[in-house]
Structures are given as structure tokens and as C-alpha cells.
């Protein structure tokens, strides 16, 4: 359980970091290291060089601007979780964060790092997706914004190009009066989700909007579009909850694994969708 050898550099400016990454196709970016270092210790990854971005100027902190919570690359999970302004702007983040590993991991792990690692069962990618957020990358070709819907591609695979550093994640502020919920099932607290659902309910008279995402059930975090459409068309009735639960089952593509069978995950996801929407609904105004 020791990492393979690598070159290490700790640039001070984003320009230097971008150049270092562009110069070496098998280099990797190191932020908090809470996903990358286990992968190294288990020899799942063997980069030629690690570019530690903790000292890069301008990559720390959180700002709320233009309807977005802008989370810079070195922002630790715990920092975002405990930020009261962030809680007021998007309470879904704090509710979800309680499920992300444990406090000592959240103290060091970064939100952007988790998004880039893109574990299909990780919680934060699913939050970026349900809020219609995005990430911003920097490369020698300039800056680029990638919507969450295009960013997550497959298990541990994103649409980030090898020479791009993700410098920010943008989590939209929740609309006024929106209800939210994050419902997860794991066997032990802090584990990756066997299945989890994030829900946002925005009530606007005849045009209620329900946004739903799930993680742990497919090869990437997914939007449960069919379930969203059922609630939009039928409102919140016993029949619509039942129909949405049944529809959710069809999204489960994860094969049987050591944690759960495909059948079990299908039932689980149906229950979690119902629970999450019920809870979000009671919190909406």
C-alpha cells in the first residue's frame, strides 16, 4: 500500500500549473488527495508527475456571484459544508455533505477534486447535476465552461481534456422557496452510496418543477428525466409518486455487485425517489 514513484511539483501560479500539465501527458493534478492518494497507494494510478495545486494563487475560497456558488479548486468539502452563506443560498449542499465520507476526509478532500474523480456513486457530482451546475477549466487553449450534464461521462471519466485543470465548480443558488432533499442508502455511514437521490422542488402554481438526480445506480450520476416529467405532468398525487418510483427503476444499470443486486437497487431507487420528493415538497413554499 505504498504509492509508485513520481516527480512532484508545487507551482505558485495557475499559468505554471497549466504549463506543467500540458507538458506531460501522464501528469496528474493533486488537490486534497483524498481520492487520488488511495488510488496511488493501491497502484490503480501511476502518474509520471503530480502537480500539487494547494499553493496556486487564486484557487482558494468560495464566492456567491451571479446566482452561482463559485467553488474554487482548493476549497475543501468541510469549508463548503460549514459556510453559512452557502447554506442559505443552497441548503442541499450541507444536507448532502453529511454523507460524503467522514469529517477527517472532508477536512482535506476538495469538492472540485471529487467532481474530477467522478466516482459514479459519489454524492457531489449528483448535486452538480441536479442543480444544472457546471465546471470551468483552464488550459493552454484558454478557459472553458462545461455543463454538468456533459461533464460526467462514465465511471471515473469526465469530458475534461488531459491538459485541462478544473479551476472552479459553479453550483447554482436554489430558487426562492424551493424545497430540497438528499436521500441516501448505505450499509455504513460515510460509505459511497448504494443508491442516493437528490431532489429539488420549485413550486410555481401550475408549473411546478421537480429536478431529480441519482448516484450509485449507473455508470455515472444521472438525471431522472422521466420521473421529473411525471411530476410535471401529474402533480403530486399518490398515482404520480407511484408512477415516478416505477419509472426510476428503469434507470438502474449497475450490475449485481458485492453490495447489492440489480433488483435490490431498482427497489431502493424507487423508494428513495418517493422519499426525496416527499421531503423536498414539504420544505417548498
Amino acid at each position: 500500500m505504498k504509492p509508485p514513484p513520481f516527480e512532484y511539483c508545487a507551482p505558485r501560479s495557475l499559468k505554471d500549473a497549466v504549463e506543467l500539465l500540458a507538458a506531460d501527458p501522464s501528469a496528474m493534478v493533486l488537490a486534497g488527495g483524498q481520492s487520488l492518494i488511495p488510488a496511488l497507494n493501491m497502484r490503480f494510478a501511476a502518474p509520471s508527475r503530480l502537480i500539487d495545486i494547494q499553493h496556486v494563487e487564486g484557487l482558494k475560497g468560495v464566492v456567491i456571484e451571479g446566482g452561482n456558488i463559485i467553488v474554487r479548486a482548493m476549497t475543501r468539502h468541510r469549508e463548503l459544508e460549514l459556510n453559512d452563506e452557502v447554506f442559505r443560498a443552497n441548503p442541499l449542499i450541507r444536507e448532502t455533505m453529511a454523507h460524503v465520507a467522514h469529517v477527517p476526509i472532508r477536512n482535506r478532500g476538495t469538492v472540485v477534486g471529487s467532481l474530477c474523480h467522478a466516482d459514479a456513486a459519489a454524492e457531489m457530482p449528483s448535486i452538480l447535476l441536479v442543480t444544472d451546475g457546471s465546471v470551468v477549466t483552464e488550459s493552454p487553449r484558454g478557459r472553458r465552461e462545461i455543463p454538468a450534464a456533459d461533464f460526467f461521462q462514465f465511471h471515473m471519466t469526465t469530458s475534461r481534456e488531459p491538459d485541462e485543470i478544473v479551476v472552479e465548480a459553479h453550483f447554482p443558488v436554489l430558487p426562492q422557496g424551493a424545497g430540497w432533499a438528499f436521500e441516501e442508502f448505505t450499509r455504513r455511514h460515510g460509505d459511497y452510496a448504494i443508491a442516493a437521490v437528490a431532489a429539488i422542488v420549485t413550486r410555481a402554481g401550475a408549473t411546478d418543477v421537480v429536478s431529480l438526480s441519482a448516484c450509485g445506480v449507473a455508470s455515472r450520476p444521472i438525471r431522472l428525466t422521466v420521473c421529473e416529467q411525471i411530476f410535471a405532468a401529474q402533480g403530486f398525487t399518490d398515482a404520480s409518486f407511484k408512477a415516478a418510483g416505477e419509472a426510476a427503476k428503469e434507470y438502474v444499470t449497475a450490475p449485481d455487485d458485492i453490495h447489492a443486486t440489480n433488483d435490490y437497487r431498482r427497489d431502493l431507487l424507487a423508494s428513495l425517489v418517493v422519499r426525496a420528493v416527499e421531503k423536498a415538497l414539504t420544505r417548498s413554499r
Partner: peptide
């Protein structure tokens, strides 16, 4: 687990260089 700048962190998931 040790304290790094006052907060708990895994020393096995931190390089000495970091």
C-alpha cells in the same frame, strides 16, 4: 489521523511533501 493545521486529517492520505 493527525492534526494538520489544527484539523484532523489522514496522514496515510497526505504526502509529507504536501
Amino acid at each position: 489521523t493527525v492534526l494538520i493545521n489544527g484539523v484532523a486529517g489522514r496522514s496515510c492520505l497526505t504526502f509529507a511533501a504536501q
